[in-house]
Design a protein around this nucleic acid. Sequence first.
DNA 1: CGGCTTTGACCGGCGC
DNA 2: GCGCCGGTCAAAGCCG
Length: 287
Amino acid sequence: MKNSSAFFDDSGFSFASLSDGEKRLLDMLGSEDMLNQPSSIYDLIQVPSVQEPQQPVETSEVVNDAETPNSSSICTSSNDAVKDDQQSKRSTQGGKPKKMLKAEKKIAKKQREPRVAFMTRTDIDHLDDGYRWRKYGQKAVKNSPFPRSYYRCTSTTCGVLKRVERSSTDPSIVVTTYEGNHNHLCPVAHPGAMGISPEPYSLRGDALSTQQRLQQQSIQHLLQLQQQPYTISPASFSNSRATSYSPLDAPTHVLEENELSFSPSSLFRDQGLLQDMVSSQMQSEKK
DNA sequence: CGGCTTTGACCGGCGC
DNA sequence: GCGCCGGTCAAAGCCG
């Protein structure tokens, strides 16, 4: 057990080094587009969010569908690229009939929850993000020695899904994909203001290792960023020790370490989180 | 006993 | 049409 550095998907790693499966996954998430053209962090961070009033977001990227009124947007490709919708599938399967009616399928096709992937450098397979998850499946994935685990939020009214798998190219990296938005408060931590209060952890504090806390906090941190329309500022990433985000249509705001209630320096320092967050593509472009 | 994980079976999408 | 593959179900078992 050593480092724990959380970072979000595409901007944070070498796309080229990924396996086919991982590329496909990120492709579904629209990552390639993001790599080519850094856009709203909403595209990157579609973390399950509590249904709290959010500032209206005014970007053309934002899509609020009926399913997720408060979720701002979206990796459109993840919404369009579709398979069957588990929700409706589940409901029809609950009784007995395992086959869906064609009409139902059509409807189901349209309803695709927004997805977001996190890549986290950690030894822990299942990151504790504050929500409670029930594992409902595990599958071996092609081109990867590591299985993919499927989790569902234990809240009965919440249909958020989560997939967890290790990177085949870098076993120290765990790829966590969230699908959908929580419609309830986080049972452990309540992401609210910019500062991340450690208090909620007291609920189960003893059970959490320092690393787990850091991971939670990192995720929560990203979660909070979702509240505001930020875009990533690659230049700042590479030039500064501090994590930099650029709110849309607003002056660049650089998040200094001391703006966070937890110390990202412990994450960034030595472990190279910032480096992780800078895509190799960006780096190579500089050369 | 309730909640969770494990795991084989099943289903649907997709490419050939 | 067929086979592969990802995703989900659900029974069985485990654990606190």
